[in-house]
């Protein structure tokens, strides 16, 4: 109990102090997670809509099971692959991206992508199959049809975004592996928590954990508000 109480005090202390190190960690966490999420959406939503609208899924139905497998892919395996690609000996080694935020963003995007595609696909498939024909019968172009389907699937899309956000902001294995947890450069909240726990600074680790929880809650609150607004529109 004492440890928990201390952690709460520490957390408030850190937030009130606007500790510059903490600010850098939180800033990087939001940057990496945010960019990763946006990239995953930009790539994943069109693919999910395309798969959801196409009558015959390409490659004899192998694609969808593959995506569902990807949704359960251990992040650390993704991290390992990204590491191997970006390492000196790897094919992309010349970019010198290993141990930079870019490497972390790449890993996060890959982790979030199957989630976004899979949940978008499910959301599109849950729409009444008669709707696309009726929308086209009212004079929609292919693009307008896709956009309308997206709008119809917005609840499912929000679920996709929330799930992807949750999975990458709480991810630790991959970002540790490809980011290197460098103080002031690639240290994010999750890797800082691991580090402080290892150092034996349990209450500081807990305080960071509380801040992470708070951030996740705030982000979900904003998305929920948007969703409620979208639903009543």
């Amino acid at each position: 109990m004492e440890v928990l109480f201390e952690a709460l005090l520490d957390a408030f202390g850190l937030i009130i102090d606007l500790d510059p190190e903490l600010r850098a960690i939180v800033g990087l966490t939001l940057r990496v997670t945010g960019i990763g999420l946006v990239l995953a959406m930009v790539l994943g939503i069109p693919i999910g809509v395309g798969l959801g609208l196409s009558k015959r899924i390409p490659a004899a139905g192998c694609v969808v099971p593959l995506i569902y497998t990807g949704m359960g892919l251990p992040p650390v395996v993704v991290g390992l692959f990204v590491y191997l690609f970006l390492s000196n000996q790897g094919p992309l080694g010349d970019f010198r991206w290993l141990f930079t935020p870019t490497a972390m963003i790449i890993a996060q995007t890959i982790i979030a992508l199957p989630l976004v595609i899979g949940l978008t696909l499910t959301a599109i498939q849950s729409i009444d199959p008669m709707l696309p024909l009726q929308v086209r019968a009212l004079g929609a172009t292919r693009g307008q049809l896709a956009w309308t389907m997206l709008a119809e699937a917005r609840l499912g899309l929000f679920a996709a975004i929330v799930a992807a956000f949750g999975s990458i902001i709480s991810e630790v294995g991959a970002v540790m592996l490809v980011g290197g947890n460098i103080a002031g450069e690639t240290r994010v909240l999750t890797t800082a928590i691991v580090l402080e726990t290892r150092k034996g600074n349990i209450s500081l680790a807990l305080a960071l954990g509380l801040i992470l929880l708070g951030l996740a809650f705030l982000a979900n609150l904003v998305m929920y508000r948007l969703q409620v607004q979208g639903a009543s529109k």
Partner: peptide
């Protein structure tokens, strides 16, 4: 000066 906060193996790898 890179402060990694990782184990010996990871630090050597870095």
């Amino acid at each position: 000066y890179k402060s990694l906060g990782q184990g010996m193996g990871d630090t050597l790898r870095f």
